Simulated assay, not measured.
Amino acid sequence: MSELAQVVVRVLVVDDHHLIRAAVRQIVDAEPDLEVVGEAGDGEGAERQAMELLPDVVLMDVNMPRGDGIRTTARLSANPALAEMKVLLLTTFEQDENVLRGVRAGAAGFLGKSASAAEIAASIRAVHEGGSALSTAAQSALVRHVGGRGENAPLPGAVARLTEREREVLELVGRGADNQTVADVLGMSPATARTHVSRMLAKLQVGSRAALVIVAYESGLVVPGAGPVDESSPRGHVRRRT
Rank of each mutant, 00 (worst) to 15 (best):
V182L: 13
P228N: 11
D184K: 15
L142A: 12
A23E: 04
A153E: 12
R75Q: 09
F110D: 03
S233H: 01
G220Q: 06
R167S: 04
A108G: 11
D42W: 14
V159W: 00
A23N: 07
V36G: 08
A141G: 11
G45H: 11
Q49S: 15
E164S: 08
E3K: 11
N63G: 05
T195W: 03
G236H: 00
S232K: 12
A226V: 04
P224S: 10
S198T: 13
A108D: 06
R167E: 02
N79I: 04
L53V: 09
G157V: 09
G220M: 05
G67Y: 09
K86T: 03
A74L: 02
R48D: 15
G102V: 03
A137G: 06
S135L: 05
R75N: 11
N63Q: 10
P32F: 01
V24K: 05
L204W: 05
E171K: 02
K203S: 15
S77F: 00
A5H: 03
V37G: 01
V222K: 02
A153D: 14
T163P: 07
A158H: 06
T195A: 14
A211L: 06
D184Y: 15
A83V: 08
R101N: 09
V99Y: 08
T163K: 05
G41I: 13
S2D: 07
E52M: 10
M60C: 12
V182Y: 08
V182F: 09
A81Q: 12
